[in-house]
Amino acid sequence: MIHYPASPSGARLKAAVCQFEIAVGDVDKNVSTGLAAAENACKSGAQLVVLPELWSCGYDGEKIAAHARKTPEITGFLSGLAKAYDAVIAGSLPEEANGRVYNTMFVINTTGPVAGAYRKIHLFPLLNEDKWFAPGRQSVILNCHGIPAGCMICYDLRFAEMGVHLAAGGARMIVVCAQWPAVRIDHWDALLMARAIENQIFVVAANRCGADADSGFNGHSRIIAPDGAILADAGQIPAHVCAELDFSIIDNLRTRFCPVAQRVPAAYPPA
């Protein structure tokens, strides 16, 4: 049996997901678009704002390291927004560190600086992502207005055991940023709901929309409740949507029945 702590008394959070078109390689345009989207969400009262994966540049192959060198300036812009609106802002950007480049979700907290970062563990083989990025080696749970939030980036969503690990570590929601293509959008919809239901946890997920030279993207950014209910859906065009997360719902669900605490990992160890 696993013990899961209750949420802080009366804990609520207004979350927003933003989706927009990403112009591959055009950092100035994307940053302008992304900052405007984040600010509009903040003006809607969002305390947590989630942006898509690699929102500053897209998957720009050989130029990704050059784009990564602009990331500190971009996180500085986000810090200004977070501080101005008392919001937490999360999204994936290329990060250069120790001579390597990572696909990293930066989480900017309400006092302005980077509160933490998660480097994408599972690199997507169909995009040859491992050619341009080094893999992260550790899952991450960060503080979001006092609520523990686990982090996932796109392909990570297919790994159920990662969601289990985050929930077991105390996460009350999973924040996801992605560039999930339209051709497999039914998988996106199903996996978001599955991660929420199986872990009795909120899922706050931002995907991009639009198209690049290789793929089309049709959004479906969503906020999912611990019982699988869709609290907000951004549809297929540039937009942001918000929902209020009432974390007492998790505790009420787990009081009635609690599969997340009744797992028997010794009976089905990793292969």
Rank of each mutant, 00 (worst) to 15 (best):
S9R: 14
S9F: 12
S9C: 09
G10F: 15
G10Q: 15
A11R: 14
L13N: 01
A15V: 04
A16M: 07
V17Q: 03
V17G: 05
V17R: 03
V17C: 10
V17E: 05
C18T: 12
Q19C: 08
Q19P: 04
F20I: 08
F20R: 04
E21R: 14
V24K: 15
V24T: 14
D26Y: 10
D26K: 15
V27M: 12
D28C: 02
K29M: 07
N30D: 08
N30M: 02
N30I: 00
V31D: 00
S32Y: 04
T33A: 15
T33L: 13
T33R: 12
L35W: 02
A36G: 11
A38F: 11
A38K: 01
A38M: 08
N40S: 15
N40P: 00
A41N: 01
K43E: 13
S44M: 11
A46Y: 11
A46M: 11
L48V: 02
L48D: 03
V49K: 04
V50S: 03
L51E: 01
P52F: 09
E53D: 15
E53F: 04
L54G: 00
W55H: 09
W55I: 01
S56P: 01
S56D: 02
S56E: 06
Y59G: 00
Y59L: 14
Y59C: 01
D60F: 09
D60A: 09
G61Q: 12
K63S: 14
A66D: 15
A66L: 11
H67P: 00
A68K: 09
K70S: 13
K70C: 08
K70D: 06
T71D: 12
T71S: 14
T71R: 10
P72E: 12
E73Y: 07
I74D: 03
T75V: 15
G76D: 08
G76F: 04
